[in-house]
Structure formats: C-alpha cells, structure tokens
C-alpha cells in the first residue's frame, strides 16, 4: 500500500508560519496544544518537534504577528497563551494568497481541481 512520506524539513520550516497563524486565527492556544493540533490535522504527516516550535513562536511574536500572555489554566498551573494580532491577520491573508497560488499552479499541472483564492 502507498504510504505518504513525512513532510521534508524545508517544507516544515516554510509552512510553520501560515500554520501557526491559521491556528491562532481560530483562537488563543499554547505550545503543547498547537503541536497536537498540527499532528491531528495533518494526519501525522507534519510532526513538529517541541524544540523547534518555541523559537518560531517567539520570532512571530517579535515580528508583532502574535502576542502572548501567561494565564492560569484549568489545572491551576500557569501557561503561556498565544494570540494573533491585527498585523498577524494581515500577514495570514498574504500567506494564504501565496500558498494558494502555489497550490493552484501544482493542481493545474497535476490535473487536480484548484482551490479558490
């Protein structure tokens, strides 16, 4: 049976920004939950290492695309939650157009139905 390979390293790096922004556009979240969500949504094809996630999150925060806050979670411990900022939403819109442009080009070449931008 054909088994889909794990995403290549360079693609993982390139797709981390739109993925993080899209997840946070749906609502606040924290590191562990984000990794879990990506694993589930990708059907296990995108496996982010924990060590890689936080530097990316911090870089996005430095760029002003996301913001963070320490908040008490249900279990009584504090967790650092991340939110998308207004600039982050603009960046996401831009990323969406670029990724769909790539997707549509490949779709035409591979004769798959293109997505709407």
């Amino acid at each position: 049976m054909y088994k889909t390979a794990m995403l290549a390293k360079d693609l993982v790096a390139a797709s981390s920004k739109p993925l993080l922004l899209s997840i946070l556009a749906d609502g606040e979240s924290y590191g562990y939950e984000i990794i879990k969500k990506v694993r589930e949504l990708s059907g296990g094809h995108i496996e982010w290492s924990d060590g890689m996630l936080y530097p990316v999150l911090h870089r996005l925060e430095r760029d002003g695309l996301i913001e963070s806050e320490w908040k008490e979670a249900d279990n009584g411990r504090e967790r650092k939650y991340y939110f998308i900022s207004a600039d982050g939403r603009k960046a996401l819109k831009n990323q969406r157009q670029q990724w769909l442009a790539v997707h549509n080009t490949l779709s035409k070449l591979w004769k798959i139905k293109p997505a709407s931008i």
Binding site: G31, D50, Y54, R77, R79
Partner: peptide, 16 residues
C-alpha cells in the same frame, strides 16, 4: 521565561 515555558510544555506532555 523560555525555561518556564518549556517546563509547562513538559508537564502538559507528561499529562498527555
């Protein structure tokens, strides 16, 4: 701050 964040991650992961 990073160490604190990583510790909460480890604890979440253990709970999982």
């Amino acid at each position: 701050e990073v160490r604190r964040e990583l510790e909460t991650h480890l604890r979440d992961s253990i709970a999982g």
